[in-house]
């Protein structure tokens, strides 16, 4: 019977990785990143990736792993402040970078996944972001045309999946993941637990299984970037 569950991150990426492809990756900082699929992508030896992701990980985790090994040629992100190696490669010209405002990035993924090739937004009008993009006035205000994103491969992290690929995310680890899932030709999900089809409450499913091609269960490390606490008085 047709089954979307794979035994390991390496197996889950077999046959869907190729040089020069566009890969969209979920997560915000290190929260909700498909951490072991990223490791498997590195270990595949793929080259010249264009990576679309809100952030670039840190030097030794997340997409930072693929920067260390120079497997990423171009990044499309909104914020990369946590990654010194990124800054070094960009300043030296080794890495191509396109900054995209965070909300525009989310909407570009959503649009790409929804079959919408472009949309107008006020975000970035009159700034560097608008350069080279068509503009249009609506009710006296200037809007810029942004393009939907279609990726060759989407990598997401969810909390729970059933064997049909329905996904449930947890807390703020949801972030870009549902949008990333829709915009890839192939979507692979790394999850914390897999249940039988029918065992998830249909009302609680965030991403329906139609968007998800492969699932792999892992033990996530879930690193914390800024552990900030309140002292008990």
């Amino acid at each position: 019977m047709f089954d979307k569950v794979y035994d390991s991150p390496d197996a889950a990426l077999e046959g869907v990785v190729k040089d020069d492809m566009i890969v969209a990756v979920g997560g915000f900082g290190l929260c909700g990143i498909p951490e072991l699929l990223i490791v498997a992508l590195r270990d595949s030896g793929v080259k010249n990736l264009t990576a679309v992701s809100n952030n670039a990980g840190v030097d030794d985790w997340g997409l930072g792993l693929l920067l260390q090994t120079r497997q990423i040629r171009k990044m499309l992100s909104s914020y990369v402040g946590e990654n010194a190696e990124f800054e070094r490669q960009f300043v030296s010209g080794e890495l191509e970078l396109e900054f995209c405002p965070q909300g525009t990035l989310a909407e570009r993924m959503r649009a790409g996944g929804a079959g919408i090739p472009g949309f107008y937004t006020k975000t970035g009008a009159g700034t560097l972001v608008a350069e080279g993009k068509p503009t249009m006035d609506f009710e006296g205000e200037s809007y810029i045309l942004e393009r939907g994103i279609r990726a060759d491969l989407s990598l997401v992290k969810a909390y729970a999946a059933d064997r049909s690929g329905n996904l449930i995310f947890r807390k703020t680890a949801r972030n870009f993941n549902p949008l990333v899932a829709t915009c890839g030709k192939v979507c692979v999900a790394e999850v914390e637990k897999i249940v039988d089809t029918g065992d998830l409450d249909p009302d609680q499913i965030h991403t329906p299984g139609i968007f998800v091609d492969r699932i792999v269960q892992t033990d996530s490390e879930k690193r914390i970037e800024q552990r900030t606490v309140t002292e008990r008085s």
Binding site: S78, G81, E87, P101, T104, T123, T127
Partner: peptide, 8 residues
């Protein structure tokens, strides 16, 4: 070179 995040 950090990026605009959600500021724009």
């Amino acid at each position: 070179v950090k990026g605009m995040g959600g500021a724009m």
